[in-house]
Design a binder for these strands. Structure first.
Lengths: 199, 199
DNA sequence: GCTTGTCAAGCAAGCGCTTGCTTGGTAGCA
DNA sequence: TGCTACCAAGCAAGCGCTTGCTTGACAAGC
């Protein structure tokens, strides 16, 4: 559908990726609808018609941003879980991975766009995104199930997972890089809040 | 600043309020920027220029929606806290009040607009909104402090409050009125999740 | 009882500007 | 010579908002 996955000459300056990054920043800061093609073009020093050489439509740019955000966060969290350990160790590693992708300097605009602007996608693309999200959240549901088996939490229901996702994703609204607290401290704090003291 | 507080003939159909309600629904569903004056006018059976008799600008409509959302939720939660009781009883009442305003049929669009579209306000109006929000969240901080004194929670820091707000406000993203769970059950569930068993 | 004036609450039309997107052309490299 | 990656220009549609005018309700004056 989109003009994705071109072969693209290796290690040359990749303008397409620059467009996607600039779009992610602008979508996150101003919102999808309030961001114009001219804004994006200007941010990468192009004329206003030129981005359409790389993308068929503005919606395709949004889709590229959102899919990259989803892929990055999924990859990081899956890798953290794969390192193994006790249920709590796995859970803590996942927390840290998720928060790092959400709050890190070079990825937070992708995450913010993913969380706040996804609903501007067309139905087909939105469906694709939701499928990815369901896969991702299933990882968390499993982690919660293991925590319960180990006696770390009392309830591993779907609502518990949704509360957790809310608390995590809401950090985008208030976290500031130089605000005194590190991402690691924040991850530790939510772990302490949710898990019973021992076990 | 806005053309508010007109005398307006009592108990006649108040078109201004209809515009605000329609705007809240459209802003919540499509976003501020993607909603046009023509959309709003059509929703209340007007010509596209007519809403400007009631509001000077589109931004003023957003401000009206957002302030009404903020006022409603503050009023409900403050009233819940004022009924008194043990720290946990107060906290549970506040949880229920907050969630009811967020999720109830007739107010959820105001809340959703407040949470997701507030950043489209102009700086002066945004500052006003943030002041209201700070006042509101101070209520919650106090409730958490009382919970800690009573031994119901271990940590009543600012980050704990932000996690709580995240879990609550995120419900807007996933709660569906006929999805099996009542608002009361959801309130109960987050209370159980956060508070230690006894005391 | 009929006219006249006032006012809230719109309508009908459209202005100036911005929007996403298209098109024809071309510089630079292979 | 052909292909990639753009530029310069602009089109049609839609945008927020303005303007001049109408309509219906109500009160005052005679």
């Amino acid at each position: 559908m989109a003009a994705s996955r071109r072969p693209l000459a290796p290690d040359e300056p990749n303008r397409r990726a620059e467009i996607v990054r600039a779009a992610s920043r602008l979508f996150a800061e101003k919102g999808y609808s309030a961001t114009t093609i001219r804004d994006i073009a200007k941010a990468v020093d192009m004329q206003s018609g030129s981005p359409f050489y790389h993308f068929k439509t503005k919606h395709d740019m949004l889709l590229a941003v959102v899919l990259e955000g989803m892929a990055t966060i999924t990859r990081a969290t899956r890798a953290a879980a794969a390192r193994g350990g006790t249920p709590r160790e796995v859970f803590d590693a996942m927390l840290l991975a998720h928060l790092e992708q959400l709050l890190a300097e070079d990825g937070r605009h992708f995450a913010a766009t993913l969380l706040h602007e996804g609903h501007h996608l067309e139905p087909a693309a939105l469906k694709e995104l939701i499928a990815h999200k369901d896969t991702y959240e299933a990882m968390w549901q499993k982690a919660l199930r293991d925590l319960k088996r180990a006696g770390n939490i009392g309830d591993d229901s779907r609502v518990t997972r949704l509360f957790l996702m809310g608390a995590l994703n809401w950090t985008v609204q208030w976290y500031r890089p130089n605000g005194g607290r590190t991402v690691k401290q924040i991850a530790r704090q939510i772990s302490d809040l949710l898990l019973r003291a021992n076990a």
